[in-house]
């Protein structure tokens, strides 16, 4: 059975899709990724689709699902490397991938993930501190 490898790099999980996805493969990836987020406590998921030439409504739904599932598992998802023709097609199809973070390439995607985690992390602590000091005053 074919499988799409999921690599762990520090707090992040990296997935590079280099084959044409058929439904079963995409569904397996969705399940595997959520499992991996839970197992590794990853804070971010980066999906590279630069080699994917077709994203239809099913694939789009899977990408959205992965992002939403990761979100409720406390991990952010960034989709990187979308081909221009795929972007044009997705919008005309009526699938704007709302709720999915995107970046042009892997490097920008990693940066986005790092910032997201940095911002989310300390900021929440900061809010708590503010509240604490507010009540103290």
């Amino acid at each position: 059975m074919e499988k799409i490898p999921i690599l762990r790099m520090g707090q992040f999980l990296l997935v590079t899709i280099q084959v044409d996805l058929y439904d079963r493969l995409a569904l397996n990836l969705e399940a595997d990724l959520v499992q991996m987020v839970s197992k590794t406590g990853a804070r971010g998921v980066l999906i590279d689709i630069s080699a994917v030439s077709i994203v239809d409504s099913f694939m789009g739904r899977i990408i959205g699902n992965i992002a939403n599932m990761s979100k409720i598992m406390d991990a952010e998802t960034v989709v990187v490397g979308m081909q221009p023709a795929v972007a044009i097609t997705l919008i005309e199809l009526g699938l704007p991938l709302t709720g999915v973070h995107t970046a042009l390439d892997v490097e920008k995607g990693m940066e986005l993930l790092r910032n997201k985690i940095l911002v989310d992390g300390p900021e929440n602590d900061g809010d708590d501190d503010d509240n604490a000091s507010d009540s103290a005053e």
């Binding site: 030439s53 077709i54 239809d56 409504s57 099913f58 221009p84 023709a85 044009i88 097609t89 199809l93």
Partner: peptide, 17 residues
């Protein structure tokens, strides 16, 4: 062209599904 190709194949993929 690539954009039209992508549109056609995506459409085909939807219909075949």
């Amino acid at each position: 062209g690539l954009v039209n190709q992508t549109k056609l194949i995506t459409a085909a993929s939807e219909l075949v599904r």
